[in-house]
Design a binder for these strands. Sequence first.
DNA 1: CGTTATATTTAGGCTAACCTAATATATAAA
DNA 2: TTTATATATTAGGTTAGCCTAAATATAACG
Lengths: 242, 242
Amino acid sequence: MSQKYELSSSEEEYLEAIYTTQEGKARVATTRELAACLGVRDASVTEMLKKLSEKGLINYTPYRGAMLTEAGCKIATKVKRKHRLLERFLVDICGIDTHESHKQACEIEHVISDKAIDTLSAQLGHPSTCPGGSAIPESDSEDETDVSRLSEVKEGSYTIRFLTSAEPETISRLCSLGLIPGLTVRVQRTSSKGPLVIETKDTQIALGRDVAESLLVSPEAMETEGRRRRRRRGAPSAATPG
Amino acid sequence: MSQKYELSSSEEEYLEAIYTTQEGKARVATTRELAACLGVRDASVTEMLKKLSEKGLINYTPYRGAMLTEAGCKIATKVKRKHRLLERFLVDICGIDTHESHKQACEIEHVISDKAIDTLSAQLGHPSTCPGGSAIPESDSEDETDVSRLSEVKEGSYTIRFLTSAEPETISRLCSLGLIPGLTVRVQRTSSKGPLVIETKDTQIALGRDVAESLLVSPEAMETEGRRRRRRRGAPSAATPG
DNA sequence: CGTTATATTTAGGCTAACCTAATATATAAA
DNA sequence: TTTATATATTAGGTTAGCCTAAATATAACG
Ligand SMILES: [Mn+2]
Ligand SMILES: [Mn+2]
Ligand SMILES: [Mn+2]
Ligand SMILES: [Mn+2]
């Protein structure tokens, strides 16, 4: 049933392109369209369409065009989701320009795992669109992570998940305060105006509202499986020396 | 001089492997070692060593082994840095297990840009080791973090970034003086002893040395190129629809 | 309907990065 | 030093994914 083929980057790329041309109106994608979209020659497209058809990922009628099958659509959607989330990440978090972020996203999308991308999505607050405005498909695996901006939470304990800001200095500042992912902080007072006072292990810090906005936190974690595993890491593995 | 070749993932991979076998002791890497490390056959290694040698990235003596040149080492270091930072990211932030994170990092490292990885490093608080414990090489591009304690700066204009103190009252005091994050102040005199005199928009304030210590400031920001560009982004580009 | 223009496929090549098998060199043992 | 073993290189082959040019199918037009 569910193909456990390992698809090549190129095969995924073609599926993604078909998905894109079909987006919304569900018409067939023509050879030329795809060639233009992918920056390859028509002949290369034909070749790949035959292969994808044999794998049951598209319905292909020679001289007529191609259309994703259920199976193909599932894969394409996943890839597109990764692409768009990665763009969000690269643009919003890393401050990469849109052209570069597209290029990088379109490579990383083929190697990043489903699990990693779901976490990333949570980190970003489950955005619904990519920087260009296109919709980001939902994940099929349910993964509730409760992430919000530090500037919006009420009193209590929170774990820092991520620093989001395109401004390097903001990040530097947060780092120099030790406010890095993994740290648990207590939010002390939250008057709707003025600085936010938070307490770390040994210090109190007042943060400007704007800065607090760039800190993504989740409620002090109950012991989750993922976290427990993470804490337990450490023992340098001889097998994967980095 | 500085090779503006675009290297393939594979070429980078070999450089990285040579780097790894050389790490610490600077001996040559043998064909067999590399083959084992990369999971390919000896013959494939020989082939690639010749190519890398021609590109001036390694010193290769047939039957003897290979060693990175200055140029090759620079590239290998960059790749390794990316690898290890990505592992940190995938393990710490995404909760991926070490084996998987190694595999993913080893692919992403070849496509993620220098700029993106530097931002990521900052996000993670500039970690010095990968999850396995190996050192993460420094970035060659300087990334200014310019935060210091008010008690230590010389005359000039500064912006208050944070109030840090173990004492809740200190923070309250500073807040009541209007010394909150975001405010720009001029430091007037800095005798090495005694109170510090600072000037805000409309007042002069004398601060005790100890209090000044809990104020983190950065130099009044000039408009940097990076910052300007970043602020300007935004307009969704029709060219790269995600 | 025939003719022309456009879109698509087929045929035949190329390159990077692998591989196996055969050969050559270097090192260790006798 | 000669021989045996381990290591490295060369020669020749395969595959995926691209290409160009030629052949063919479809669509558009008078
Ligand atoms: Mn892609
Ligand atoms: Mn893509
Ligand atoms: Mn790699
Ligand atoms: Mn690697």
